[in-house]
Simulated assay, not measured.
Amino acid sequence: MKKILIAMLIMIILISVGCSNEPSNDLNEEQQEDKNTETITYKSENGDIEVPKNPQRIVVLYGTLSGHVMALDGNIVGVEKWSMDNPNYEGYLDNAVEVSDENIEKIMDLDPDLIITGSTNKNLDKFQKIAPTVSFTYGKLGYLEQYLEVGKLMNKEDEAKKWIDNFRAKAKKSGEDIKAKIGEDSTVSVIEGDNKQMYVFGDNWGRGTEILYKEMGLKMPEKVKEDALKEGYFALSSEVLPEYSGDYIVFSKNTEGDNSFQETKTYKNIPAVKNNRVLEVDTNKFNFNDPISLDYQLDKFIEFFLGQ
């Protein structure tokens, strides 16, 4: 009996020693927590802000910036309605809920470690009490500079630079091929709207305009240049649309809107329409100029102009 008791005691001692040599899960969790709470100093347009080096729970309240965060694999837990409704973002927002800048308590419940919003947001002071909050002014930076800034904010500047270089090279080459096919002097208009209100766009208001005019170097009609280039967009009626139509048209179309103007003689007699040179795209997928949207838009243009 004594032998059995001694054997059992030795076994218990050996098991205890073995367990003490195993890595501590608690320690690993603490180390991980320390890693997630490391900070960097981001030089924002409003001064230096201490932000997480590796943000884990991000709330984005500015539709033009959410795609930048997604492209850098940021985990978005709260985002505004425009982003939630964008088909291009399907799969990126599985962990997110819809919020607005009025949902202070809801945002607080999400326990964010970083909030990104626009500079005109009236609740900035309230958000700053919840988590480090960085605001951006739309149009203050070029569209690719904006992505680089978000890369700096998320401590992923090198990834942003790499994407920018690859994107610009692809767009430039595609632009050269397109001009060789349609002619250096051919013009392209980008329009949006319906029977109630139409818009034509310059070169910095999303809808693929940055790609067409800035990266590819395609030309816009003189009338568009006169009225839309400075402000970025120009409102007009469908009756005067022919005056702003180029040799090719990109129509950012809201399928739920009243598009009956497309059945009028005025529209059907536009040369680009008669010659089947209109690219109709989903306005929800073409609104923004983040990397996800830009990649989608560029592929659409290559397919339309070059048939690839």
Rank of each mutant, 00 (worst) to 15 (best):
E45A: 15
D48L: 03
V51G: 02
P52T: 09
L61D: 00
Y42Q: 04
E45T: 15
L72A: 08
L65H: 06
L61E: 05
E50S: 15
I58Y: 05
G47L: 10
N75A: 09
V69R: 08
N46M: 09
I49N: 07
G74Y: 01
V77P: 13
R57S: 04
G47D: 07
A71F: 02
R57A: 03
G63C: 03
N46I: 12
I76M: 00
P55C: 00
L72T: 13
G74W: 05
G78W: 01
N54C: 14
G47E: 05
L72V: 13
Y42P: 09
E38D: 15
V60H: 09
H68L: 10
G63Q: 11
L61C: 06
R57P: 08
V79A: 00
T39E: 13
V79L: 02
H68I: 01
L72R: 08
S44Q: 15
T64H: 06
N54M: 11
T64E: 11
S66E: 13
T41N: 10
Q56N: 13
V69G: 02
V77D: 02
E45H: 14
E38L: 12
V69S: 07
V59A: 05
V59G: 04
T41Y: 07
D73Y: 08
G67L: 04
Y42F: 14
T64A: 09
T39A: 07
I58E: 03
K53Y: 07
V51L: 07
D73T: 13
I40E: 02
V77K: 02
I58H: 09
P55W: 01
T41M: 08
S66D: 10
V77T: 03
V79P: 03
V77R: 00
V59M: 04
E50C: 11
E50F: 12
Q56W: 11
T39S: 14
D73W: 14
K43G: 11
E50N: 14
G63A: 15
E38K: 15
Y42R: 05
H68E: 13
I49A: 06
D48S: 12
G63E: 10
E50D: 13
V51Y: 05
S44I: 10
V69L: 02
V60F: 06
R57C: 03
Y42E: 06
R57N: 07
K53P: 08
G47Y: 08
E45L: 15
V51K: 01
G74T: 01
K43W: 15
V60D: 01
N46K: 15
I40Y: 00
I76E: 00
V51R: 01
G63V: 12
Y62T: 12
I58A: 04
I58M: 07
V77E: 03
E50W: 04
N75L: 06
R57F: 05
V77H: 07
E50V: 10
H68T: 13
S66A: 14
G78V: 09
V69K: 12
V69N: 04
I58R: 06
Q56H: 13
V60N: 04
N54Y: 15
Q56G: 09
E50A: 15
P55V: 10
T41K: 12
G47V: 09
G74R: 03
G63Y: 10
V60W: 04
S66H: 08
T64Y: 01
Y42A: 02
S44V: 11
N54R: 13
V69M: 08
S44L: 07
T39M: 12
M70I: 15
D48P: 06
G67Y: 01
L61A: 01
I40C: 02
Y62M: 14
P55D: 00
E50P: 06
I40H: 05
G67K: 06
Y42N: 13
T64I: 08
T64K: 04
